[in-house]
Every structure is written in C-alpha cells, then in structure tokens.
C-alpha cells in the first residue's frame, strides 16, 4: 500500500472550494512536492492528510491509517510542520524541543540520533528563545521538533517560505538526507524552482492537481516551442508580442519574457523582424528548455481552456 492514498478528496469553505476531488498516491520513501501558488489548496490538503480537517467528500489513508477513522493512531506516526512558524517564541530552543518530545511521550535524549544532523547546527544557541532566532534557525528548530518523535512520514507545509536563499538550499539538503534515511516526506512550496529537488511533484492550482509526475517528465512533456526574450521594456514587449499572429502565450518570467508559438516550430527570425517593426531594437531571442514554471503555465492554460 502507498504511504499516502487519496481518493476524490474535497473540501469547501462556505462557497469556496479549496480542494476539489483530488486523487493521488505517494510512495514510501518518496520526497513528494505539492507545488502551486497561494490559494492552490496546499494547506487544506495537508490539514486533511494530517487529520486536522475532515474532508467533505472522499477519503485518504496515510501510512495505512484512515485520516478520519484512525486519526488517533495516525497522529502518533506523522510529523507535521505547519505553514507559519509555530513554535513557542517565549521558550528556548531546548525547551521547545523538550516540550514536543514530552507530548509524544519521549525525550530528546532517547531520539537524539534522529535529529542530530539538524539539531547540531543550532545546539550552540540552545539557551536562546525561539522568538530571537533567524528564519533559517527557526526552520531548523521546527524541523527538529517535527522529527523528535521519530515519525514515519513528514508533512512540511511551505517550510521555505520567508527564508533566505542559503537557508533554503540547506533545508533541501537536510530533506535529501532524511529521505536517504528512508523517511517519506511530503512538502509544499510556492517556489517553482524548488520542484527539481523532489522525486515527484504535483502542480496545484485552485484546488486541482494540474499534473503529477517527476519534474523531468513534467518539463519533458512540454510540447510547444519556447523562446526566451530579453529587452528593455518587458511590459511593452509583452503587449507587442500579443499582436504577433502566431503567438500562443506570452508571460513575464523574471526579467525576461517567455514566448510560445502556436505552430509546431517557432521562427525566431520572423519574430525579430516583427519586433523591430514595432520599434524594439535590442531584443535577444533564444530557444530554451521548459522549466517547471513554464509547464505550470501551460498546464494551467490547458486546464482553464
């Protein structure tokens, strides 16, 4: 049986459908990423899988436990790190850790080897209150607290949101080592560039899963010719490209513009000519491989269309 098995999960709040008929499976030992912008339904999905919310329809099992019926057994077996920094700010690092160990009926000493790798990095500051820690340190502490009772599966809801780039990289490194130790990890993130760190990803938007596969397969199945364009005025460039007859889609991508052609192959030369006629002088046009974000945009368009 899979580590997580969801069947047509649905949750609505008032007249907003947060999660709509999601079915998927996560295998044991997998590092699985739920990727999507705010409001995609990631947190609601996590809360249903961790037994904090009861689905309106459908069902899910986590580690063989039904999330509604067997929630008591389930809660002993999962480690959960909610989206916000949810530790006691007025308690020190070691007090927080000792508290979370105690409520699972264990001690820090007994399970030290479980967290040693991560905890050692913040141990020199163990007398410091959690409220005074940097974002990266808070995140390490939160992960230590979620691991202290040796869970079988970890749910991390946007653990890297609001954390600096270096700490984010370190964090993914820690997750990779945990995975190597056999842990099943389900993580959510709004950052598309983190998708590549996962074994498999689910791209989510407005309560739907647009695609679920390995990152390579997701980007590999991107069918359209994709061009990266750089120029002075991105906004005007987008407006101009929308008037080009063969444009399929145009969207801003950081400081450049990603363009897809509606034909099976694009014609950069013709595009350059078109743009020059619209007064764009120094535009670099370069064919590129699709990123996860490109795939996300494409899947979103297919889904909405």
């Amino acid at each position: 049986m899979s580590a997580v098995q969801a069947e047509a999960l649905r949750k609505t709040f008032g007249n907003v459908t947060a999660v709509e008929d999601l079915s998927f499976a996560i295998e044991h030992g997998e590092l699985f990423g739920c990727i999507g912008p705010d409001g995609a339904g990631k947190t609601t999905l996590f809360r249903m899988l961790t037994s904090l919310l009861v689905p309106d329809a459908g069902s899910a099992t986590v580690m063989g436990c039904d999330t509604v019926r067997d929630y008591k057994q389930l809660r002993r077996r999962i480690g959960y790190m909610p989206g916000r920094f949810s530790l006691y700010q007025d308690l020190t690092i070691e007090e927080n850790l000792a508290f979370f160990a105690s409520i699972f009926g264990t001690t820090v000493e007994k399970n030290y080897e479980m967290i040693a790798d991560i905890y050692r990095q913040i141990e020199p500051f163990k007398k410091r209150r959690a409220g005074q820690l940097s974002g990266g340190m808070k995140q390490k502490l939160a992960l230590s607290c979620a691991l202290i009772h040796k869970p079988d599966i970890l749910f991390l809801d946007e653990p890297t949101t609001g954390v600096d780039a270096v700490s984010r990289r370190e964090f993914w490194e820690m997750l990779r080592r945990l995975k190597e130790g056999g842990m099943t990890i389900v993580v959510s993130t709004p950052y598309m560039d983190e998708a590549g760190k996962c074994d498999r990803i689910a791209l989510m938007q407005k309560g739907h899963i647009l695609g679920i596969d390995t990152p390579d397969n997701i980007t590999g199945s991107y069918a359209r010719p994709l061009l990266d364009m750089r120029g002075a005025d991105v906004y005007r460039l987008i407006l101009a490209l929308r008037e080009f007859p063969h444009t399929h889609s145009v969207f801003a991508f950081g400081e450049s513009v990603h363009y897809t052609d509606s034909r099976s192959s694009a014609d950069p030369e013709a595009l350059a000519v078109f743009l020059r006629s619209r007064g764009f002088a120094n535009i670099t046009i370069e064919p590129i491989r699709a990123s996860v974000e490109d795939s996300f945009m494409e899947l979103l368009e297919q889904h909405d269309g």
């Binding site: 809360r47 961790t50 904090l52 008591k72 999962i78 409520i103």
Partner: peptide
C-alpha cells in the same frame, strides 16, 4: 493565533 494549536492537535495529546 500563533498556530501552535495545530501542532498540539496533531500530537497524540
């Protein structure tokens, strides 16, 4: 408010 209740609830308490 702080979100710690979420962790308390998913614990075996």
């Amino acid at each position: 408010e702080l979100g710690t209740m979420e962790i308390l609830l998913v614990s075996p308490l």
